[in-house]
Every structure is written in C-alpha cells, then in structure tokens.
C-alpha cells in the first residue's frame, strides 16, 4: 500500500513538473514571439482630419468628463473672414460676438478684430468640447482651417480609445508619439 502511494505521488509530481516545464516554455516562447513584434516607439491615438465627418461622438464617447478632443486651428489656412461660417450661426442676427449669433454651443471661439475687414478666430480649449459644429461650418463654406484633434496634454491614452470604437468613419488611429498630430496642410 505504502509503495503504491509513493508511486502515485512520484507519478503525480512527474506530471506536475512536466506541466510546469511546458507552461514555462509556453510563456517563454509567447514572450519571445511577442517581443519580436514589439513596437520600438510609443504610439498615441489621433484623428485623421481628412476622414472625420464631425458627427459629434467625440464629445460624448471620450472617457474623460470633458472630451480630450478639441478643435484646433491652422492659422495659415484661415481666410480671416468677417463672416466666418465656422463662427456664425447659418442665420445670424448680427455679425457680432453675441451668443445668439454663434455656432459654438460653449462659446469657445474667440473672435478678434485685426484690421479691416479681417478677424482672427482662436479656440479656448478649456471651453471647447470637441463637438465639431464649427468644423462642419468651416468645411462647408470656408477654407477648412478648423478641424478636430486629440489633445495629448489631456488624453489619457486608453488601451483602446473609446471614441475610436464608436467613430462612424473610423477616423481615429494610432500614430507615433513623436508625431502625435495630423495637422491639415496648406493647399
């Protein structure tokens, strides 16, 4: 009986050790294989402005209370129009900074007089919620100098971007961290 027991134990421990070795080897080869494919540089999420359709999901899908997506402005592309279709409601009462005339629901665009007849438009990122209403307006009738980007001082770089999962045009992709923005080009 005792002999049978010890046989049992040694068989069990042999099985145990064998499985342990196999698991170790499996983990090792998994590590090796994955290591051969590891990214050398960090990546971050970014919106491709040429794919973005300004659906408004960036405002609601981001895991942050106030979305990390903001409107950015490439000034070199801007026409500095007095009647900016990114700034003004399609049917404004007056061409002034009254809230009822503005397209932006949070009043995040700062309009400043430069010289006759030019006005500059800047984004207050603390107010911007990334809804893209101004982007739509600017794309429709303007130069398209306003567009949405993920701001990396705010983005928490989730393993899977919640906005990317919901984006109807699949415009959000991973980009190298040393070139973290896709800015529109003049032209």
């Amino acid at each position: 009986m005792a002999e049978k027991d010890s046989k049992d134990t040694s068989r069990r421990s042999f099985l145990h050790d064998g499985l342990w070795g196999i698991s170790m080897a499996a983990l090792g080869s998994l590590a090796g294989f994955a290591f051969s494919r590891t990214a050398k540089e960090k990546t971050v999420w970014q919106i491709d402005p040429y794919k973005c359709t300004c659906c408004g999901k960036c405002t609601t899908e981001c895991v942050l209370a106030l979305s990390a997506v903001k409107c950015v402005h490439v000034y070199a592309m801007c026409g500095y129009c007095e009647l900016c279709t990114g700034y003004f409601d399609p049917d404004p009462h007056e061409l002034d900074t009254g809230a009822e005339n503005q397209l932006c629901p949070t009043g995040a665009i700062i309009r400043t007089f430069i010289e006759d007849p030019y006005y500059s438009y800047a984004i207050d990122e603390d107010l911007c919620n990334g809804c893209g209403k101004c982007v739509k307006g600017c794309n429709a009738f303007g130069n398209g100098s306003l567009f949405l980007q993920i701001r990396h001082n705010l983005c928490v770089n989730c393993n899977k971007c919640a906005i990317a999962a919901a984006c109807p045009s699949q415009a959000i992709k991973k980009v190298p961290a040393d070139e973290p923005y896709i800015l529109k080009q003049v032209g």
Partner: peptide, 8 residues
C-alpha cells in the same frame, strides 16, 4: 482654398 490668406 476658397479664401486666400489676407495680406495684413
């Protein structure tokens, strides 16, 4: 581009 950049 619809509106050329202004000459300030």
């Amino acid at each position: 581009r619809r509106f050329p950049p202004p000459d300030f």
